[in-house]
Design a protein around this nucleic acid. Structure first.
Length: 491
DNA sequence: TTATGCTTTATAGCGCACCG
DNA sequence: CGGTGCGCTATAAAGCATAA
């Protein structure tokens, strides 16, 4: 350690320090409690690998404002020199304030990273030196001693030199820790990409892996629509169907329909009354808040709703035998969160998360079964893919609540038609088909143009004729895999 | 494509920990 | 003691991802 008290040697050292790239600095002040504290020492370390403080300078600047000024102008103002302090604000107050350039504060760094990684009780330099570096028995007892006295005690000088040693080490460790944390963040960020599948995507992958691939990579439509593009019908229907459930549960008029004894209830009559009620309470108001442009579609929606209500009337009449008029609605229409998620174990040992939400959940008292309902507002072209989709809903709900769950698909347009899949049938589908399919889907998505084994085209040639991305599929896969199309079934 | 909800961003106030 | 500025919290707004 060099303890500098003579003006000439101090000036010489300041001149040397002015050429440094980085300096680790600390100051001691006298009379910190008084109205005008005075700076007493400037400790400087230019060689951070010094663990003993032997290479540290202790510059005595008590009552030497001209030397302080020289230090400020030569070192503090020089933006080429990085000045590292702990709680820099305090020291900089005595060393040029806003004139100081390129100042680093380890206290600030530590605060920024405290929550993320640092496991320390507090952020004092002493604590950081002990917890982050290999120092023990860091003595801070001199910190608040009288730095205005001369001569300074050996203990004070020892403390003064070690402070910058701790500072340099703590600074180095903090930078290491930051780098670690940031590279971790990058990794985490990269893994945040969407790697979930949904039952809808699984259905699509069953219908046509290529369409699934194109949609996933480039977006675009996925619906196999025959020709009449009945736009917006699906959304409107889903909304209205949900409104019906809400109304049925809340409105007394619906409840009153089921007051008579179960044997006296006639499905046709109930259905008609519910249709009328729904028309008056929900559909008519809906009609009038819509633009007239939907007029052609709106009629079809009403037809679909009538079919739906008719079907539900049957179910309600059955359920009425098992419960009261008050409870039949709440019992039949299960309104809980429709969101589902499940991690599937794949054949290759990995896992795949599937998330999704179903349309509607009903309960059949007679069968003592829940049933997930999926609405379709167009003619289904591939019922096995549809089965795959609803089997996922059933399975995921069953896993969540640990009761068997049936599935139904209501094709409400062009006329009401129901597909019903009892759980016993679905369970087998899920176990035998889904894990393999999920694994395939994952592989398909990693396929790049030019590689072998592209996602195969649908095995149902008639779908290609109504495929919404027919041209894209042809050009993309023709270029990528010229002779592959030859192997496909003729359309 | 659209509705929904979760995430990010914006804003502001406040307490607190740091230095000697 | 005293100045400071960061992070935490609460709240609101905007953006983004996602599901069908």
């Amino acid at each position: 350690m060099q303890y500098l008290t003579k003006n000439a040697e101090i000036k010489e050292v300041i001149g040397k320090l002015a050429a440094a790239k980085t300096l680790w600095l600390d100051t001691e002040t006298a009379h910190w409690n008084a109205p005008d504290p005075k700076i007493s020492l400037i400790q400087v370390l230019a060689e951070p690998e010094d663990l003993t403080g032997d290479r540290a300078y202790i510059i005595d600047v008590l009552n030497k404002p001209d030397l302080v000024e020289e230090f400020i102008s030569q070192v503090m103002e020089n933006p080429e020199i990085e000045k590292v302090f702990h709680n820099a604000k305090y020291d900089v107050k005595f060393l040029g304030k806003e004139r100081a350039k390129n100042v680093t504060c380890t206290y600030k760094i530590a605060r920024k990273r405290k929550r993320a990684r640092l496991q320390v009780p507090n952020l004092q330099l002493k604590t950081l030196a002990e917890h982050l570096c290999h120092f023990s028995n860091v003595d801070k007892s001199e910190q608040a001693s009288d730095w205005g006295q001369r001569p300074l005690t050996p203990k004070q000088l020892q403390y003064a030199k070690m402070d910058v040693v701790y500072l340099a080490q703590v600074h180095r460790r903090l930078l290491e820790i930051i780098n670690l944390a940031e590279s971790d963040n990058i990794v985490n960020l990269a893994q945040t990409v969407n790697n979930n599948f949904t039952p809808t995507k699984v259905r699509l992958a069953f219908e046509c892996p290529r369409l699934f691939y194109l949609h996933q990579r480039f977006g675009g439509n996925t619906l196999f629509l025959p020709k009449d593009a009945a736009t917006g019908i699906g959304k409107a229907f889903h909304n209205l169907a949900e409104q019906f459930v809400n109304l049925a549960q809340k409105s007394l008029e619906f409840k009153n329909l089921f007051e008579p004894a179960a044997e006296q209830l006639k499905v046709e009559q109930i259905a008609l009354r519910m249709q009328q009620l729904f028309y008056r309470l929900a559909f008519y108001p809906y009609l009038h808040q819509q633009e007239q442009s939907l007029a052609p579609g709106i009629l079809r929606i009403w037809e679909g709703l009538q079919g739906l209500i008719r079907r539900w009337a049957e179910l309600l009449v059955v359920n009425r035998r098992y419960c009261s008029a008050e409870t039949v609605m709440n019992k039949t229409f299960v309104t809980q969160s429709r969101k589902l998620e499940h991690n599937f174990n794949l054949p290759d040992g990995s896992q795949q998360r599937v998330v999704g939400e179903f349309d509607c959940l009903i309960y059949n008292c007679e069968r003592d079964r829940l049933c997930v309902v999926e609405f379709k507002t167009y003619k289904p072209e591939d019922t096995s893919a549809q089965l795959a989709q609803v089997s996922l809903y059933s399975y995921m709900l069953k896993e969540k609540q640990n009761v068997p769950v049936d599935s139904a698909v209501y094709c409400v347009l062009p006329e009401f038609k129901e597909y019903y899949y009892p759980w016993e049938q679905l369970e087998n589908t899920v176990h035998s088909l889904i894990p393999h399919k999920l694994q395939q889907m994952r592989q398909w998505l990693t396929w790049e143009s030019g590689q072998p084994n592209p996602p195969p085209s649908t095995i149902q040639p008639h779908l290609c004729q109504i495929c919404p991305q027919r041209e894209k599929c042809q050009t993309f896969f023709d270029v990528a895999d010229g002779n592959d199309r030859e192997a496909e079934p003729p359309i």
